[in-house]
Amino acid sequence: MEKTRVLLAAPQRLVREAIGRAIDHEEGLSLVGATDDSLEAFRLAREARPDVVVFDLDSNRIDWPHFVRELSLSCRGVRFLALSSDGSPERISALCEAGIHGCICLSSGFSELVKGLQRVGEGELYFDQEISSELPEVLSKVNEGAILLRGLTAREREVVYLLSQGFSNRQIAREMVLSEKTVKNHISHILRKLELKDRTQVAILAWKTGLALNGPS
């Protein structure tokens, strides 16, 4: 099984080393770098191409929403998991708008972090129980549809984009060089993840969130 490649950004050396060692000893995870500096994190991300960047939200030394937006542009496909001590809805909503894919409270324990890394690495969104209790307030502050779309894989977002352009399953299959059965499977997964009933609702969401105009990347 291919391991999820993890880059860790945390200012406290003890936190960085403890989490880093634990990740490196966990089956299915591989630590590709650890740093306390945002510029170094950019360099490491470009070189190591991690699947997930984990960062400590409680550091005031770094503008994390800016960090997430800029690194997303530099390293297409990278996903972000934040660690936080308080789960503040205001801070998490700003990060959701920037493009994170999950958040875990530091009080949750390492097993919760592993679960979050696995889920985010597989292309899903993941917020632990403590954060989830605040999600209704968080989602009221951001575009909920945009957050849900970030939980799709790159292939699924491409299918959503083509659906929004009026493509049939056969046309999508031809465009993406897939079988129609595979396209149907993608659409089933998309409907389940987005909690929608049909492809028309998916297309409407794509136009509301801008994906239909800006493309799937």
Rank of each mutant, 00 (worst) to 15 (best):
V114N: 05
E134H: 15
G215I: 03
E195L: 02
A41K: 05
V120A: 05
E97V: 03
L29A: 08
D51N: 11
T4H: 08
D86Q: 10
L83H: 01
L139R: 07
E112A: 13
K184L: 08
W207Y: 13
P50V: 05
A9I: 15
H25M: 09
R46A: 15
K3P: 01
A212N: 11
L14R: 10
N60P: 09
S85Q: 14
R43P: 02
Y126E: 10
A9G: 06
A98V: 01
G210E: 12
W64N: 07
E112R: 15
E90M: 10
S188N: 11
R119Q: 13
L211Q: 12
S188W: 06
L196S: 07
G116M: 12
F110L: 11
E97S: 13
R79H: 07
R46T: 07
I204P: 00
L213Y: 12
R69M: 05
R46M: 12
C103N: 08
F42H: 09
L14W: 04
H186L: 05
P50N: 01
L135C: 02
V177C: 00
R76G: 07
V6S: 06
L213C: 04
F110N: 12
G20N: 04
R16I: 06
R91D: 13
L191M: 10
T35F: 01
E195K: 05
S108C: 11
P89M: 04
K141L: 15
D24V: 03
K197H: 13
V159D: 02
S179C: 09
T35Y: 03
I131T: 11
R46H: 08
S72E: 08
G28H: 10
G121S: 14
V114E: 13
D198K: 10
L31M: 06
C75W: 00
R61A: 10
D128N: 15
A206I: 08
D63E: 05
H186E: 13
E112W: 03
Y126G: 09
A146R: 13
K193R: 14
L178P: 00
V202A: 10
M1H: 12
N169H: 13
V53L: 15
S140C: 08
G99C: 07
L139E: 09
E27K: 14
G33D: 09
R199F: 01
R155L: 12
R49K: 10
G121A: 10
M1F: 11
C96S: 04
G28W: 06
G109R: 04
F80Y: 12
S132R: 11
L71D: 00
L95R: 03
A154P: 00
S88P: 00
R155I: 11
V114A: 10
F110A: 07
S74R: 09
A82G: 04
I23P: 01
E134M: 09
V202S: 14
A82S: 13
A18F: 04
A82W: 14
V6H: 04
C105Y: 04
R79N: 08
Y126W: 11
G102C: 01
S88T: 08
L29N: 03
P50D: 04
E47G: 01
L73W: 00
L178E: 09
L83I: 11
Q171C: 05
A94T: 05
A10D: 15
I204A: 13
E156T: 09
I19Q: 00
L205T: 02
Q165R: 14
G109H: 12
Q171L: 14
H25R: 14
T209D: 03
L8H: 03
V32G: 02
L14P: 02
E130Y: 04
C75M: 13
V177Y: 03
V15D: 13
